[in-house]
Design a protein around this nucleic acid. Structure first.
Lengths: 164, 164
DNA sequence: GATTTTACGTCAGTCATGTTGACATATATT
DNA sequence: AATATATGTCAACATGACTGACGTAAAATC
């Protein structure tokens, strides 16, 4: 009877609500990545390759540094994945025109095809979720997820996402 | 001028909107997991340990099978992490009362403390995002993320999340 | 023009966390 | 009594992170 959970305790309700929101994000993300993972297995690529293909596809000509900054991994980690993608002809590098130290990254035709293929299943998943949820819910989704992004570089990240 | 991107093409806008939603989820999840990762490093635990502590904490007395079903990993993978947590006194097992083959999982006092500590930073992050976004946005967040969960076992997952 | 910094690549070793496959043990079910 | 289930365990391997050290070309600075 003095159990904190059994009384109508607004603090507990709040904590419970937050815990549910956390689990929801866990499960949603798990299933959100399942589709691409499945496809990439056929190419002997993993999630790391997916991320590279995704971001290079969205930012053609981006430099290695920019990619490292987005992925938040070490250059040694990136290099194994990236040089694999280059060797197998999904990504190509061109020397920077202004700064010739830079290696600018582009998808090859084959890379673009794979990117499309993988992206499609993910877009369809999200499109379905958006359709079921409705426009207002989509706006809420954006607001909350934006708030989850680290405040100290939220603007940088948002610019990167929204820049078309 | 015939560039599909340059005309007011609703299909392109839709695709762009979806791509932005996908990146938003990527970045939000990245920062959502950063806090716990940081804390767990001090204990020489990783994200895998976190997941076990989280779900055992939320479902005291759950069996190993149930945990495996949630995490979607092999028992061999789980075992390394789980036996580590048991050995170090964060989780304990008790034989199932009805079915004595089952090992029911519980957090120890120490485990509960760690769970609280880690959970707190994540709850605070989500609480801030919720507060900034407002109640209506939170409802939208829930709707959309629910829609992202694999439809074939969405009900099972939702029951697990909502069951208090 | 010499020096320093920057962007990138690479070698080598380690760790965390996932996988497959095979086998063991206790208990429940048929 | 035979079979199925829940769990544990050993061994080998893959992926994708990490640290640390070193190299090279080009830009920036003194």
């Amino acid at each position: 009877m003095t159990d904190v959970k059994s009384v109508n305790n607004p603090l507990f309700l709040r904590e419970e609500e937050l815990r549910q929101a956390i689990e929801l994000l866990f499960f949603a993300y798990r299933d959100f990545t399942a589709g691409p993972d499945e496809i990439l297995k056929d190419y002997n690529f993993g999630r790391a390759h997916h991320r590279v293909i995704h971001f290079v596809g969205r930012n053609e000509g981006m430099t290695v540094s920019e990619l490292l900054d987005i992925l938040r991994i070490t250059k040694q980690s990136l290099n194994r994945v990236l040089s694999n993608l280059i060797k197998r002809g999904f990504v190509e590098q061109r020397q920077g025109e202004e700064d010739r130290r830079q290696r600018c990254l582009y998808l090859t035709e084959e890379g673009r095809m794979l990117e499309q293929k993988v992206s499609r299943v993910q877009r369809e998943l999200v499109a379905n979720a958006f359709r079921e949820a409705g426009g207002e819910a989509v706006a809420g989704y954006r607001k909350v997820l934006t708030g989850l992004i680290d405040e100290t570089n939220r603007d940088t990240v948002l610019n990167r996402i929204l820049k078309t």
